[in-house]
Design a protein around this nucleic acid. Structure first.
Lengths: 247, 247
DNA sequence: AGCACTTCATAACATAGGTTATAGGCGGCT
DNA sequence: AGCCGCCTATAACCTATGTTATGAAGTGCT
């Protein structure tokens, strides 16, 4: 899963906004690659901002440690996502990033990114669009954590992951792998691990979510989407026209 | 309170990164201005992205309506903030924006912003930095809503507002105006209005926050900061060197 | 295969915060 | 001044979720 396959870049491409130079620049971003192990910490909160990554394979998450020893997971990254852009414009990391399972990352430097932005207005706009979309997901999480029940929070998160995985072809026959433990899910959703377990039981009894080992299946995706009142705008919204004209 | 006084722009200026042309471009952003009334809705979720604003005077907030009739307030804007940048890169609004009290806004078009970004790499970087800082505040809210008590959530929010107001010179003798109702505070923090009231009472009894009408006073700001474990990094962090060189 | 370690399910109990209700204070309008 | 409506404070009660505990199941290592 490379950047060239990502939704935003695909949209730019489909509208003929990407030049050959642009494509070359994107491919160069992924020139270096490195295997990473499950649980490996890519960087810690407070460290210097030395690199960003394209996540080629595996899942990762960004997190903040809390006073009481637990953590809040801020964002889950899937293959094709860019990791660390949140810190662009800061000199220190605002959050740590760790791998969930084993994978492959392609690190690139802030200078490289700056150069790309300076060279190609189209890609600059694309990068902004990617960053804005990540922020939109965070906003959606905020809304759900603020005023929804555990069932809605978990259901919404699972459904979002399902849609994101489907876009990158990682859903087969309605089934997908979820490598997060219940404790980690709790850290995403602001719930205790025990209550995540209870909530899975409830979702199972209601026939909305079946989970066996790491495999998840929605018997009736539409019913789940309805229960959590899923609005796909923040994931699917097309780029505005101004982004697609290669002026 | 103009953009030229904002923290990020001030930093750029202090390092001599701003050219005269840059300053002129910024001033032009605020060429148009309009009075707005208390409670006025600037735009609704789902409408077309036609403009952004510099908030010159008054407070505003962005929000999402929820199923159950209540709302989640996502962000509170103070004088000098840019409103609507969240939607840059989308063609429809992801959230509505409303005024809290009466004020003055300076609307400008997405085209205007695009042109500014194309004309000045320095300002482009500055705009990204501003957007990233707004996202950082949102992230901080997420962390607080996810796993903190009502006291910490409210205390943290009040302290953040206090620091932001102090930067723009709106704190006098440790006192500041808070034009939000308890219901609105609840919508920010994911709490019921009743519990916001209870929480104010608790903070008062503990001598951390005194509030009379709209005026707030912290008898011991340090104690409050400690209780909510306030980390100022996300507000104060300096721009990285790459942003400050005018290449 | 056996052992240690982590993850998961469920139960029993504790509590922060939601809900509903009531009453007082304050501001704006006529 | 008087009325009406909103905002705030507080109480009583309810519920979703946290906490602690226990056992079962799964995973990985030797």
């Amino acid at each position: 899963m490379t950047l060239l396959n990502s939704i935003v870049i695909q949209q730019l491409k489909r509208h003929g906004a990407l030049s050959e130079v642009d494509e070359t620049l994107l491919i160069e971003l992924e020139h270096n690659s490195r295997r990473v192990t499950a649980g490996e910490i890519l960087w810690q909160e407070g460290s210097d901002v030395e690199l960003f990554c394209v996540l080629k394979a595996g899942w990762a998450y960004s997190f903040r440690y809390l006073d009481n020893g637990s953590m809040q997971i801020l964002k889950v990254y899937l293959p094709g996502d860019i990791i660390g852009m949140r810190d662009f414009g800061f000199s220190k990391r605002l959050a740590g990033v760790a791998m969930i399972n084993a994978g492959v990352i392609c690190p690139f430097s802030p200078q490289h990114l700056c150069q790309l932005i300076r060279t190609s207005p189209t890609l600059a706009a694309g990068m902004v669009a990617i960053a804005v979309r990540q922020q939109a997901m965070l906003t959606e999480r905020l809304v759900y954590i603020g005023r929804h029940t555990a069932q809605q929070r978990l259901g919404h998160f699972l459904y979002e992951i399902y849609l994101r995985l489907r876009r990158i072809g990682a859903v087969e026959e309605g089934r997908f792998q979820l490598p997060l433990s219940q404790e980690q899910l709790g850290d995403v959703l602001g719930l205790s691990a025990v209550h995540v377990s209870r909530t899975f039981s409830m979702l199972r009894e209601e026939g909305l979510v079946l989970k066996e080992r790491q495999e998840v299946f929605f018997p009736d995706p539409g019913a789940l989407a309805k229960m959590v009142e899923f609005n796909t705008t923040y994931l699917d919204e097309a780029l505005p026209p101004a982004f697609l004209s290669s002026d």
